[in-house]
Design a protein around this nucleic acid. Sequence first.
RNA 1: GCCGGUGUAGUUCAACGGUCAGAACGAGGGACUCAUAAGCCUUAAACGGUGGUUCGACUCCACCCAUCGGCACCA
Length: 480
Amino acid sequence: MQNKFFITTTLPYVNDKPHLGFALEIIQADIIARYHVLMGDEVVFNFGTDEHGVKIYRKAQEQGKDTQAYVDEYAAKFDALKKGLNLSYTNFIRTSDPKHKAAAQEFWKICEKNGDIYKQIYKVKYCVGCELEKTDSELLDGKCPIHPNMAIENIEEENYFFRWSKHQKPLLDFYTANPDFVIPDFRFNEIKKFVEGGLKDFSISRLKTKMPWGIPVPGDDAQVMYVWFDALINYVSTLGWPSDEKRFTEFWGTRDKRNAVQIAGKDNLRQQSAMWQGMLLSAGLPLSKHIIIHGFINSGGQKMSKSLGNVIDPFEVVEKFGTDALRYWVAKEANTFEDSDFTWDKFKESYNADLANGLGNLTSRITKMAATNLTEPVSILVDTIPDSFKAAIEVFDIKKAAGIVWAEISTLDLLIQETKPFALAKTDPAKAKDIIKNLVIRLYNIGRMLNPILPETSETIKTLIQENKFPEKPLFPRID
RNA sequence: GCCGGUGUAGUUCAACGGUCAGAACGAGGGACUCAUAAGCCUUAAACGGUGGUUCGACUCCACCCAUCGGCACCA
């Protein structure tokens, strides 16, 4: 039976255009998803947009737009990533989708029935100057840093709470029983420590009068769901839960065979690996299989920020150097689990070394020798992907997998140098042909390994080999 | 403040209680030419600091310095 594979990114919040950090996440997910397709699995790869919440509501009002029109516009921008980054996602879910809304309400009802949702007075600190609610961590000596001479008001409102505290023990037991639940391990330690420290129930609704843009709480017209509660449910609503039980079970898995792989940034560690899992426990659904946590991308050693002017736009990379150049950077140069640093200079250096001088040049020299010396295309009988490559991707270590591909590229360059087929062609054509055929086969296998990482380049290489042609133009021209 | 991580060549990363601490990129030199002045060979280049444990530490311990992250409602 065909293996089912499910992977999802987090849903970006639609208050800004896609940035390089999110491109990293979705390209990583895409590489993993494409790998599983290559291995013959049936894959659901989920992505979409998180469209509720007060920030979005305000932003739409600022721009004088209807909220739905505003989110439609942003959803389209994010969906454009598919083409720009050559993504293979199968599902694009929007939290404003009626099916998602219905799923969120059903999820709520189950949690409520199981005694995990209750009403309580919720105290919020409010800065009159900002006209915003503030958290303790945002305050300096109990005052708003922007308006230090204005008093912070304490507002009380009645909200629904989720009984997270009840699930502390089950969560910890689950963590212990599944030592590879969160990847990498240092993030797992972080969340374990956090949960061990005790879980405080969190608020999962807001007054509709204050925040009209949200999913109505079942049975209470005065309240809407807080975005977190609503948004996390997309991971199951995208699979048709609760109505399509078969599909849900196949891809999300069961308690005995959990199947859902989630990828998220380090700022999402808690939400994905503790809050969401607590919600799943409450709803009686299987937990996720893996939560993969990636780092952030800095630029020149500093956080990207508009004021520093060091923000890197992923589309600019794509426009200048192509989609595969960006995908290459994410896979081979960026750290898979730790923070990474992007600068144009370093990008160009590695592009020249690995894509122009490495992969591109190797493809040219081998296909040129093949086209010159072989009368017909080499027939590829077996497709071989090294076990080490498979092992790396199966533990989501994309950078390691990419390293294996580039090690093979170096090996072939060296092999050409040592066996000199270009010289042998003049003295011993038969032997030269054998060597060239072998090089072509090994190049083909590089192309196959590149299928998940650089889909377009992979296809180009395979086509050149199948047609016994060489590239008219360099695959990756050098950058000066 | 509390907890945790990190600190190795110009840069990004490895490794190990004990042969000259590895690699890649970058830099210098060389021979070649199938290829995108690419590839190959080659040279130079590093263990944050102070003590301690040990026959012996980059690797273990203590302290110091530097740096990063977490410490709950921030999507």
